[in-house]
Amino acid sequence: MSHISVRNLTVAYNGHPALRDVSFDIPDRQVTAIIGPSGCGKTTFLRCLNRLIDVNNSVRVQGQVLIDGEDIFAPRADVMSLRRKMGLLSQKPQVLPMSIFDNVTYGPRLHGVRKRAQLEQIVERCLRMASLWDEVSGRLRAPAAELSVGQQQRLCLARGLAVQPEALLCDEPTASLDPISAQSIEQLFMELKNDYTVVLVTHILRQARRLADYLVFFYMGELVEHGPAQQMLSNPSDPRTRKYLEGVIS
């Protein structure tokens, strides 16, 4: 299990800073929830952790993100293997234009798994972990786009798990789901946190209360406060955190 620590991270789009001097350690094998008002830099932060932020040419990143002591932004860092270590679950489930089966095996095949039996094993294991197996085991060859949105999100989770990541980065993963599907995703996080470090961006304070072990509050690109969730929720030290938790700022 690798350890993620963020050191003086500053990110600017076209010269406009979106994150300013953020430093903290993400606890291993826990759910770290990142909360804060819209536009405060949550997505930006998450996209730094797997360097998906690089996709944008006009972005400038300063500071370090250390994973097991190695700076992922170092010039010689291996981005592809970093992304493999950091599973991503986005707000809107984005299935690949292929069958359910191929969606799950896409990552493993990229990384060299070729044997049929092994791929089948991976598919079953990951779909079970994402509690989707019972619903789709009879139609693995069907297009993934035919699944319901809630099922698609669980498929995306299974797809991410198939490359054996060490951490899961989740950007409002239940935002486009119905309450039942959202609940099943939340349930999955509770089980997954035993084996994975989960970083969860959420707008839903109740969700943070239910799931988070550790809480991080961003406000206008700054890290305002971070700490164990219980403590921060019951007794926030910064007035801005208190206001946000009370719903005065949103």
Binding site: N50, V55, M80, R83, G87, S90, Q94, L96
Partner: peptide, 12 residues
């Protein structure tokens, strides 16, 4: 872009 990102995020 989000479709491409889904693939990149898996290490492609």
């Amino acid at each position: 872009v989000s479709l491409k990102e889904a693939s990149w995020a898996l290490g492609a």
